[in-house]
Design a protein around this nucleic acid. Structure first.
Length: 863
RNA sequence: GGCCGCGUGGUGGAAUUGGUAGACACAGCAGACUUAAAAUCUGCAUCUGGGUAACUGGAGUGCCGGUUCGAGUCCGGCCGCGGCCA
C-alpha cells in the first residue's frame, strides 16, 4: 500500500504554511486596529505531558471560529497558556522523585512542540503559565484585596479528610466513604480554612444566567440547580429538657414548607450541629453515633444513598403555633450542617424522607394537606395508615388558622404568623456554599498570610509579595512538604515582629483558571494582574469553548471571580464569557482479552468480524471516552505525522456535530485524507487554466454550478456562525462534487471550474487551513488566506429560475415536476395532471381539494 | 421521584419555520483502468411485494394514539438511553 507521504507531501506543505504564518505574524493581535474585536478562547490545558485527541478537538473547534472570524474582518485575540498547578505534578514527584516544577515545565515544553504541527492560529506571544510567580503573584495581591473587601474570610468547617494522603478531599473525591486514591475511610474533620464569599453574589449569579443567551441551555440549567435558590422560613423551636423544663434556648430550623408545620412530628439536627456536640459531652452513645455519621461522606449523594439513621437526644422542641405540643429532637445522618440551619423539622405526611424516618422510629404521621377534590377525612386516614407521603399541592387541613388555604397561601400565612410571634421569619436559602480554597498541597499558589499567635492571621505586606514556593522540598513522606520544610514557614509577624508562621496551605487550582482570560488581555503586565482598559476592551470572551465537565465549577467560579474583581476595581463588568460552547468527548472502541485486560487499538488485528491481539482473541467493547486506563487512546502526533493536521481536523469536524461525542475511526481519517488529495488534484487542473473573469454567457449546466457556488458561500457562512461544522463540510463536499463534474468543454466551463476551486479554498480555509493556502497559491494568488478575506455571495444567484415541485396525491408523493419559479397553481396543475404517475392515482377518483405552496408542493386531494 | 435532552439505514449523521426522509460521508457490493495491487474513476445501495427488465405497488424516522391536505418535526400516553437535581 502506498503510504500517504508518497502521494502528496502534506507534511511538507503543512510545515511550509506554518512557517509562513509564523514569519508574517498573522496571528498576533493588531494593535490600534479599527476592526471590531473578537476574543476566541478554549479552556487552557493542564500540562500532563502529552496532547490527546480531546485537546485536538477542542483547539480545532476554536481555531475554526478564530480563522472564520478573522476572514470576516475581525481583530482576533486567540491566546494559549497552561493551567500548570495541580496534583498530578506532585504525584509524579512522589512516584519518580522529580520536582513538580521541573516536571511541569518540561511537559509544557513538550506540549508546546506538539501544538506546532496542528497549525492553530494562536498568538503565542501571549503565552502564560499559571505556576510561575509572574502569574500567581497577582493572584496573591487580589486575594488580599478580596480579604479587605470582605469577600474572603477564614472559618472552621467540616471537611473530608483523607488520613493516608493527609489532605482535604472535595466531595466529588469521596467514593462510598473512602478516598478515591488511597481507599482509606474518609474522616470528617473540623479545620480552619480560607473561603471566598461566592454566596454574596448568589442572587446575581442566578439572575444573570438569563442574560447568557449564547450559552447552552444544559449548562444554564446546571448552574441554576447548583445555586439552588429556595424560598422558605427559619423557624425557632423553644427547647425543652427531658425533665420537661425549658432550656431557655431555641433550635433554628430551615424549611421550604412552613405550611406543613402542624404536621410536624419530630425535629432533626445534623450530627455536626453544635447542639449535638454539646449533648454528646455527657452522652457516650451520642458521641459514638456522631462518629459513625462522620464516617460517611458529606456529599449529598452519599447521604441520600446511606440508610437514614437517627439518635433520640432526649430533648424536645415546643411547637411554635401550639406551645402545649412538643416533639422529640433527633440527631440524624441525613441532615446537612452546611445547608440552612443544619436542622429541620420532620413532617412525615408530606415528605418522603421524613416518612421513612418516622416509620423507622415509630413517630406519628399527621396529614395536613389533602387533594382539593377528595374527601379530606378519608384521604387523611389512608395517608396516616400508609407509607406514602403526599407531596403535591392541595388544600391545608387539620391546621388551625391555615385550614382551607392552598399551599402557597398557607406558606405566606404561616410566615406572617411566625414573624408576629417572633418565632421565625421568611427567608431565601441557597444550596450554593462558600468556596473553600485551602488545599494542603505543595504545587499550588501559596496563600499570602502569616499566622501570629498574638495578632492572628496577618496579610503579607505588598512589599513582600510574591510569596514564592521554596524549591528545596521533599516528597518522601505523605502530606504537605511546605509544612515540614525546615525554614520556609518561620517568619516574623509583619504586624508585631514576633515569631510567626506562614500559611502552608495553597490555593485550590480553580483560582488560577478563574481569571486567566483577563490576564491574556495584557499578559506581560508586571505591576498589576492586567491592564483594566485592555481587559475592558477585549472582555467578555466572545466565544469560549471547552468540555461540559466544567459546566458548573470552573464556569461558576469564573463568573464569581469577575464580579469579585469588579467589586475591587480591577474590572467593571459582570460576565466573563458572552458565548459558551461545550464540545463532546472523543471516543473509541475498547478491546479486552478473556482475562479482562484492556488492549490498545494498535495491537488489534481484524479478521472478518473476529478480533485478535498477538494471537489472543479479544472482545470488542462499546465505544467510550478515550482514556489511558482503558487503553483506547489514539495518539494525535502519530495521526498527524501520517495524514497531516488538515485530515485530522477535517475528520473531527465532519464526522459528528461538535457538541456530540465523536467516534474515532481509522477509516474516517482516511476518507478525509482522500478528499484533501482530490481537492488538491482539482487545484492542479485549475491552475492550468488561465486566470479570467466568469463570462456572463454560460451554458445552462455551467450556470447551475455557478448558482451552487453562490448558494454554498451563503450556507457555509451560516453553518460556521452556528457551530454546524459537520454541515459546512457536507456543503463544501457537495460543491466539490458539483465543480468537479463540470464539463469544461461547455461554454464558460473552464472559467467556472477555476472560480469554483478558488471559492472552495476560501470556504475550507477555516477548517483545513494548510491545503487551503496551497490551493490558493496554486491558483496564482499572492495574498494568504490566513490574513483574511471571505467570499461574498451574490443574492441574485441564490435561487434558480425554475424550481422542482413535489406533486402529491392525497398527501403521498407521486411525482416531481420542474416549473418556472413564478408558476401559479393553474399552471402547475396543468403540468401535474399530465403526469402518468398522477393520472394513475387519480383514476376513478374525484379531486376534492388542491393545496398549493409555491415552490414547494402541490397536493391533490382526491377520493 | 422531579426537571431537561435524545431515539432516523450496516455506521456517523442531514432534513433551519409541519411540505420530495436518508443530504454529505464511512463501511459494503459490482464494474472500468492495471500484468497485479494500491490509488483513481463509474455505478448500486432503508426494508419488502410483483416484473427478465425499464418499471410499479406497499411499509418505514423507538412503541401506541391524535391534530392536519400533509408529521422525523406539533399534541397525549408508553418504552429505552443520557444528563442535572433529589
Amino acid at each position: 500500500m502506498a503510504t500517504p507521504e508518497e502521494r502528496h507531501n502534506l507534511r511538507r506543505t503543512e510545515a511550509k504554511w506554518q512557517d509562513v504564518w509564523t514569519n508574517r505574524n498573522v496571528f498576533t493581535v493588531e494593535e490600534n486596529s479599527s476592526k471590531p474585536k473578537y476574543y476566541v478562547l478554549e479552556m487552557f490545558p493542564y500540562p500532563s505531558g502529552r496532547l490527546h485527541m480531546g485537546h485536538v478537538r477542542n483547539y480545532t473547534l476554536g481555531d475554526v471560529v478564530a480563522r472564520y472570524k478573522k476572514a470576516k474582518g475581525f481583530n482576533i485575540l486567540h491566546p494559549m497558556g497552561w493551567d500548570a498547578f495541580g496534583l498530578p505534578a506532585e504525584n509524579a514527584a512522589l512516584e519518580r522523585g522529580v520536582h513538580p516544577g521541573k516536571w511541569t515545565r518540561e511537559n509544557i515544553k513538550v506540549m508546546r512542540e506538539q501544538f506546532r504541527p496542528l497549525g492553530l492560529s494562536l498568538d503565542w506571544s501571549r503565552e502564560i503559565a499559571s505556576c510561575e510567580p509572574e502569574y500567581y503573584k497577582h493572584e496573591q495581591k487580589m486575594f488580599l484585596d478580596f480579604l479587605k473587601a470582605g469577600l474572603a474570610y477564614r472559618k472552621e468547617s467540616w471537611v473530608n479528610w483523607d488520613p493516608v494522603e493527609h489532605t482535604v478531599l472535595a466531595n466529588e473525591q469521596v467514593i462510598d466513604g473512602k478516598g478515591w486514591r488511597s481507599g482509606a475511610d474518609v474522616e470528617q474533620r473540623k479545620l480552619s480554612q480560607w473561603f471566598l464569599k461566592i454566596t454574596a453574589f448568589a442572587e446575581d449569579l442566578l439572575k444573570a444566567i438569563e442574560t447568557l443567551d449564547r450559552w447552552p441551555d444544559k449548562v444554564r440549567v446546571m448552574q441554576h440547580n447548583w445555586i439552588g435558590r429556595s424560598e422558605g422560613a427559619r423557624v425557632y423551636w423553644p427547647l425543652v429538657n427531658a425533665d420537661g423544663r425549658d432550656r431557655g434556648e431555641t433550635l433554628e430550623v430551615f424549611t421550604t414548607r412552613p405550611d406543613t408545620l402542624f404536621g410536624a412530628s419530630f425535629c432533626a439536627i445534623s450530627a455536626q450541629h453544635p447542639l449535638a456536640a454539646k449533648l454528646a459531652e455527657t452522652n457516650p452513645a451520642l458521641t459514638e453515633f456522631i462518629a459513625e455519621c462522620g464516617r460517611t461522606g458529606t456529599s449529598t449523594a452519599a447521604i441520600e444513598m446511606a440508610e437514614k439513621k437517627g439518635f433520640d437526644t432526649g430533648l424536645r422542641a415546643r411547637h411554635p403555633f401550639d406551645p402545649a405540643r412538643t416533639v422529640p429532637v433527633f440527631a440524624a445522618n441525613f441532615v446537612l450542617m452546611e445547608y440552612g440551619a443544619g436542622a429541620i423539622f420532620g413532617c412525615p405526611g408530606h415528605d418522603e424522607r421524613d416518612m421513612e424516618f418516622a416509620r423507622k422510629y415509630g413517630l406519628g404521621v399527621h396529614c395536613v394537606v389533602a387533594p382539593a377534590r377528595e374527601d379530606a377525612a378519608a384521604f387523611c386516614a389512608k395517608l396516616e395508615a400508609g407509607n406514602e407521603a403526599f407531596t403535591d399541592d392541595g388544600v391545608i387541613v387539620n391546621s388551625d388558622f391555615l385550614n382551607g388555604l392552598d399551599v402557597d397561601q398557607a406558606i405566606r400565612a404561616a410566615i406572617a404568623k411566625l414573624e408576629s410571634l417572633k418565632l421565625g421569619k421568611g427567608t431565601v436559602q441557597y444550596r450554593l456554599r462558600d468556596w473553600g480554597v485551602s488545599r494542603q498541597r505543595y504545587w499550588g499558589c501559596p496563600i499570602p498570610v502569616i499566622h501570629c499567635a498574638k495578632c492572628g492571621p496577618v496579610p503579607v505586606p505588598d512589599r513582600d509579595l510574591p510569596v514564592t514556593l521554596p524549591e528545596d522540598v521533599t516528597f518522601d513522606k505523605p502530606g504537605n512538604p511546605l509544612e515540614r520544610h525546615p525554614t520556609w514557614k518561620h517568619v516574623k509577624c509583619p504586624s508585631c515582629a514576633g515569631d510567626a508562621v506562614r500559611e502552608t496551605d495553597t490555593f485550590d487550582t480553580f483560582i488560577e483558571s478563574s481569571w486567566y482570560f483577563a490576564r491574556f488581555c495584557s499578559p506581560h503586565a508586571t505591576d498589576k494582574p492586567f491592564d483594566k482598559a485592555e481587559a475592558m476592551k477585549w472582555l467578555p470572551v466572545d466565544q469560549y469553548i471547552g468540555g461540559v465537565e466544567h459546566a458548573v465549577l470552573h464556569l461558576l467560579y469564573s463568573r464569581f471571580y469577575t464580579r469579585a474583581m469588579s467589586a475591587c476595581g480591577y474590572l467593571d463588568m459582570q460576565e466573563p464569557f458572552a458565548g459558551m460552547f461545550t464540545q463532546g468527548m472523543v471516543c473509541h472502541e475498547t478491546y479486552r482479552t478473556a482475562d479482562g485486560l484492556w488492549v490498545e487499538p494498535g495491537a488489534v488485528q481484524m479478521d472478518g468480524d473476529k478480533a485478535t491481539a498477538n494471537g489472543v482473541p479479544v472482545t470488542i467493547g462499546r465505544s467510550e471516552k478515550m482514556s489511558k486506563s482503558k487503553k483506547n487512546t489514539v495518539d494525535p502526533q502519530h495521526i498527524i505525522e501520517t495524514f497531516g493536521a488538515d485530515a485530522a481536523r477535517l475528520f473531527m469536524l465532519s464526522d459528528s456535530p461538535p457538541e456530540r461525542d465523536l467516534e474515532w475511526t481509522d477509516a474516517g481519517i482516511e476518507g478525509a485524507w482522500r478528499y484533501l488529495n482530490r481537492l488538491w488534484r482539482m487545484a492542479v487542473q485549475a491552475s492550468a487554466i488561465p486566470a479570467q473573469d466568469v463570462p456572463s454567457d454560460l451554458d445552462p449546466k455551467v450556470a447551475s454550478v455557478l448558482r451552487q457556488i453562490h448558494r454554498t458561500i451563503a450556507s457555509v457562512g451560516d453553518d460556521l456562525e452556528k457551530f454546524r461544522f459537520n454541515s459546512a463540510v457536507a456543503r463544501i463536499r457537495e460543491l466539490t462534487n458539483g465543480v468537479g463534474d463540470i464539463d469544461r468543454a461547455l461554454t464558460g466551463g473552464d472559467a467556472v471550474f477555476r472560480f469554483g476551486v478558488g471559492i472552495l479554498a476560501q470556504l475550507i480555509n477555516p477548517l483545513t487551513p494548510h491545503i487551503a493556502e496551497e490551493v490558493w497559491e496554486l491558483l496564482g494568488n499572492t495574498t494568504i488566506l490566513a490574513q483574511g478575506g471571505w467570499p461574498t455571495h451574490n443574492p441574485a444567484f441564490l435561487e434558480d429560475d425554475v424550481v422542482t415541485l413535489a406533486v402529491q396525491v392525497s398527501g403521498k408523493l407521486r411525482d416531481t415536476i420542474t416549473v418556472p419559479k413564478a408558476a401559479d397553481q393553474t399552471a402547475c396543475m396543468e403540468i401535474a395532471m399530465a403526469s402518468p404517475g398522477v393520472q394513475r392515482q387519480l383514476e376513478g377518483k374525484t379531486v376534492r381539494k388542491v393545496i398549493f405552496v409555491p415552490g414547494k408542493i402541490l397536493n391533490i386531494v382526491a377520493s
